[in-house]
Nucleic acid binder design. Structure first.
Length: 290
DNA sequence: TTGCAGGGGTCAA
DNA sequence: TTGACCCCTGCA
């Protein structure tokens, strides 16, 4: 992949393989990217915003710079990873997986900002996608930092910013009982009870155990946080969808979360999280397990 | 219009 | 292991 960096805030990427923004943004790992009328995707991570246009093997990023691309967007999109090796490893001797990869060939696992990922999946629990998007958007618009240019979106509020609020302030988000989880977790993070930047250096099990100390964070939210922030790609989040899908595609793989995660760890190891995304996307497209 | 079930979980008993 | 939790959406 080649990156051509212009001075006017535009980065042109050529020969971008294994990337389809629709598949990547709509496979359930993020909730803030939106498709605009001009065909661009508008999104953000941390305090950085960008517009993305995808045409064949070309990707154009607008509203950024060479430095920000190299330090923020390149790792965010996981563009420095070669997915072809992972794909051939996963599909070797596995027809189900080969088919799933064919359908979701452009999925990339993002490396999202850990706090934003944690907070978003805290909000996602027992909730539907449109409503998750609405709550996250209200949170950002109400408490994030606003971009200076017209059409730019608000950034995700920091843990410290949310920790400075109270439950009444957050009622505007209409998150219900999740408000308490968000507030308590934001306070715990800002007080250093769990240091998110240390999780990458921990083993997967240790990282997960640390997240589980947070009030409102269970196994599902912890695994989503570790997988979708790129901290531990072997995480295999199991929700009711995954449970149904796995039992439809791999009969006997497990009747509960623990059994399924054991199956996934044994079968896919460090690639378990990626395998899950291909299977999940495929199952949703084909309405398998519905 | 109203009522009800269910949603990509977690906590506490 | 089970019910409650907030609140929105879809459906009858």
């Amino acid at each position: 992949m080649n990156a051509i960096i212009n001075k006017d805030g535009i980065v042109n990427l050529e020969q971008v393989r294994d990337f389809d923004p629709e598949q990547t943004f709509l496979c359930g790992q993020c909730f803030r990217w939106e498709l605009l009328d001009d065909g661009c995707w508008n999104g953000s991570t941390g305090s950085h915003r960008v517009k993305l246009l995808h045409e064949g093997l070309k990707v154009t990023l607008k509203g950024t710079s060479g430095d920000v691309y190299n330090t923020v967007w390149l790792p965010y999109f996981d563009f420095d990873s070669d997915y072809s090796i992972a794909k051939s490893t996963l599909s070797d001797g596995d027809e189900v997986m080969a088919l799933a990869i064919e359908h979701g060939q452009g999925i990339r696992l993002l490396r999202q900002e850990p706090w934003e990922t944690l907070a978003t999946f805290l909000i996602s629990q027992n909730n539907g996608i449109p409503r998750i998007r609405k709550i996250v958007e209200t949170l950002c618009v109400s408490f994030g930092e606003r971009g200076t240019d017209p059409g730019q979106i608000s950034s995700f509020p920091s843990a410290e910013r949310i920790a400075s609020l109270n439950e009444d302030d957050l009622t505007v988000c209409r998150a219900g009982y999740r408000t308490e989880y968000l507030l308590r977790t934001a306070r715990a993070i800002s007080e250093g009870e769990v240091v998110l930047s240390e999780l990458a250096a921990c083993s997967y099990e240790e990282a997960r155990n640390r997240l589980l100390r947070l009030h409102g964070v269970g196994v599902k939210v912890a695994d989503c946080t570790l997988l979708f922030s790129g901290l531990h790609r072997e995480a295999f989040p199991v929700d009711r969808w995954v449970l149904r899908v796995m039992n439809a595609l791999y009969p006997g793989s497990g009747a509960d979360v623990f059994a399924l995660q054991t199956f996934a760890a044994k079968k896919w190891g460090k690639l378990a999280g990626l395998a899950q995304e291909y299977l999940f996307y495929y199952a949703r497209m084909k309405r398998i397990g519905v």
